[in-house]
């Protein structure tokens, strides 16, 4: 049997909102260590990797070595409309069960339950290497969201140029070109902090459509972390409630290759 209780149900709601436009069906891989999810978008350009450690849950039980629960994202986000912002969520599945039961509760006054039919999803797993990035940028989620939204008005691709002292986001479109520079700002109040760590400068191009999709996970944390290496996928990481110990939602995006 699998049973997990999360007092802050909105965390799960935000996770699903963050990935629902990228992936149609996903597998929840449950083990005694927590919940993992890995899925590619239909074009195989990006990869979503979720890790929820048991620390994020008030209660967590998985009797088997592992369980795979196949979820349709559209149905899950529909179910989570039932979940109020202050509700707790309990997920429960029998070992050989065909459903995952969600219970949303606010105190004892209101209890909603929905049994979701599980799917059999064929999914490929990719090995994500532990990567040390040449450039790391930590910036407020609101800033990331705003930059991607504003830049998408001018072009399809955005160049991220990370150098000592700051990071430049630029776009070159039909109507002209523009750039936004964010300075390395470690000594301002937490919510405005921008931390740019550079071993060697990196400049890469990415599709704004995907960068904007990742921004839908912004409500999950205050800060987002970008990892860049030459000629490798960009890593866009949201730590759950800004605590890596609870887990993280990571997106990887393949770069555009210049001709």
């Amino acid at each position: 049997m699998f049973e997990a209780v999360l007092s802050n149900g909105s965390t799960l709601k935000k996770i699903f909102e963050g990935i629902k436009d990228l992936c149609t069906d996903v597998n929840f891989d449950v083990s005694s260590e927590g919940i993992k999810l890995q899925a590619m978008d239909s074009s195989h350009v990006s990869l979503v990797s979720l890790e929820l450690h048991t620390d994020v849950f008030e209660q967590f039980r998985c009797d088997r070595d592992s369980m795979t629960l196949g979820l349709n994202m559209k149905s899950v986000t529909q179910i989570f409309k039932i979940c109020g912002n202050d509700d707790s969520v309990t997920m429960r599945a029998e070992d050989e069960g065909e459903t995952l039961e969600f219970t949303f509760e606010k105190g004892e006054d209101r209890v909603s339950t929905f049994e979701l039919k599980l799917m059999d999803i064929d999914s490929e797993h990719l090995g994500i290497p532990d990567t040390e990035y040449q450039c790391n940028v930590k910036l407020p989620c609101s800033e990331y969201q705003r930059i991607c939204r504003d830049m998408a008005g001018f072009g399809d691709n955005m160049t991220i140029d990370c150098q000592k002292g700051g990071v430049t986001f630029s776009v070159d479109g039909e109507v002209g070109k523009g750039k936004i520079f964010l300075k390395h700002q470690p000594n301002v109040e937490e919510k405005h902090k921008v931390i740019v760590t550079v071993k060697e400068g990196v400049e890469l191009d990415f599709a704004l459509r995907y960068l904007n999709n990742f921004a839908k996970a912004a409500p999950l944390s205050d800060h987002v972390q970008l990892g860049l290496n030459s000629d490798t996928p960009l890593s866009v990481r949201f730590d759950i409630e800004d605590k890596a110990t609870l887990g993280s939602l990571k997106f990887f995006l393949a770069p555009k290759i210049k001709e």
Partner: peptide, 14 residues
């Protein structure tokens, strides 16, 4: 011009 690469070019299938 730039071409979109696939994520499977970078991460190995398990």
């Amino acid at each position: 011009a730039a071409n979109q690469s696939s994520i499977t070019n970078f991460f190995q299938r398990k």
